[in-house]
Nucleic acid binder design. Structure first.
Lengths: 253, 253
DNA sequence: CATTACAGCGTACGACATACGCAGAAGGAG
DNA sequence: CTCCTTCTGCGTATGTCGTACGCTGTAATG
């Protein structure tokens, strides 16, 4: 049989199959003491406690009381482990919006849900993303977001683009906020002192003649105190939703 | 004056001082054969050629015909090197908008300029960002962006937020596009086949009853071909600018 | 009971960042 | 000119990491 390909289409990576529970236990051999989900949970525990940098294969194995190389019976590589960590790290999606809720309120709730997850698990932002979502939980998030836009006049492509726009914003804002909090901890500074410290550095570095706009911002005093992160987040989110709303209105005419 | 500290404010990291050219050559000792900018240029060359993962201290040293440890006379750590790489990687800012150009056209040009840089040097997206910009070129970019919003009714804080919104979007969109192109190269797939492959995987994984909205997108056919990246970019950018415009109009009343 | 396939693990290897200390060069002081 | 200080470049060594390979014991099948 020359080209008998039982799987139509591209191959599904083994880590993805694990995440969907498509691996059947083989009939022979000793019963496994380790499981994929157990390994992933342990890795998430390490990341929650000490950050993504602390997640090494040996550290995860120690967490499980196993040897380092034992993990490789269940996952193919550290990259696979990271992909699975993202899936369980995001956790279950917030669920569909209540009936009667309009798209804007629905997406606001959706964005805040991701925002909360990233606040709780900032290490998710440090995982290098290697492609579009393929794991169950992350696809659940996408599903819930898409449902919010179901009744609108946007095309499917526009709905995807709008969602990508929002997720991108949430991650970007979380990255910024996390940097500030992590950076202030690393510099031994009290929270709330980060922006003033940044402002003072800037004022010593920049020449007002060469950077007039920056100098204007600097003297305006907006950098004198850390912004309330939630207000910052709301500001940007409202701008994006305004932009989407403008398109929807135009389409609906 | 109780606490006379000669440096008022927080200490400036040595890498930052190097970037601003504030290091004076000491009068004694042998003349340096290596320079900070030479090292950074070599590292950028390596990243341009083989990606950020190829940038190791030994590889950069080899590029310069020097020994690995020689680099540490000039930079404090690899993280410092990365920060300097970002500065020269971004390069000079696009410059202020021509007089008479309104804020929207100015910011569009600004966003496309960053977009082009990230297309040319996708490794910039893989550098873990550790804080707000402090180096000359990156601050130049911020300066140019701020100038676009100078005449508008937005407060300084709102101007910064708007800029952050746009940069975040540009980086986020570039990350996505880069993943698709890098991923298709890694999977040995022709460009243009990535989204269809993704769609086929999805259709084999998701249950239409559990993921109705995703299934609807899947059957709509939008995933049957790779989107034109420039159109995608324009779509999101226009949404964000629409949102900012709505705010400016409201303020201007 | 023999076979077989698999689980857990010990060892080993190559790549990496980087701490430490030595050798030699270049300018200043006598 | 000579000596001394101070800097540059670098060789060595250490600890961490991901992971390839192969051995040992175990559980179910024939």
């Amino acid at each position: 049989m020359a080209a008998r390909t039982d799987d139509d289409g591209p191959a599904i990576p083994p880590a993805i199959e694990s995440a969907w529970g498509l691996r059947e236990r083989p009939p022979k051999g000793p019963r496994p003491g380790l499981t994929v989900s157990g390994i992933v949970d342990a890795a998430v525990r390490v990341a929650d406690a000490d950050g993504l940098a602390a997640v090494s294969m040996s550290r995860v194995a120690k967490e499980l009381g196993a040897a380092t190389m034992a993990l490789y019976r269940h996952i193919g590589s550290k990259d696979e482990l990271l992909m699975l960590m993202v899936d369980t790290g995001y956790g279950p999606s917030p669920g569909p919006a209540a009936p009667g809720v309009d798209w804007r309120a629905g997406l606001t709730r959706w964005a805040w849900a991701e925002h909360d997850v990233l606040r709780r698990r900032p290490w998710l932002l440090h995982v290098p993303i290697t492609g579009p979502p393929l794991t169950p939980q992350t696809l659940g998030w996408m599903e819930d977001g898409l449902r919010c836009l179901d009744g609108t006049a946007l095309t499917e492509g526009e709905q995807m683009s709008a969602l990508l726009l929002i997720t991108g914003y949430v991650r970007s804002e979380a990255t910024l906020t996390t940097q500030i909090t992590e950076g202030s901890r690393a510099a031994g500074r009290k929270p709330g002192e980060m922006m003033p410290a940044y402002g003072r550095m800037l004022s010593r570095l920049i020449d007002p003649a060469r950077f007039p706009a920056l100098h204007r911002v600097l003297t305006s005093g907006v950098l004198n105190h850390d912004d309330d992160p939630d207000e910052e987040f709301t500001f940007g989110l409202d701008r994006i939703l305004d932009g989407i709303e403008a398109l929807i209105r135009r389409r609906a005419v």
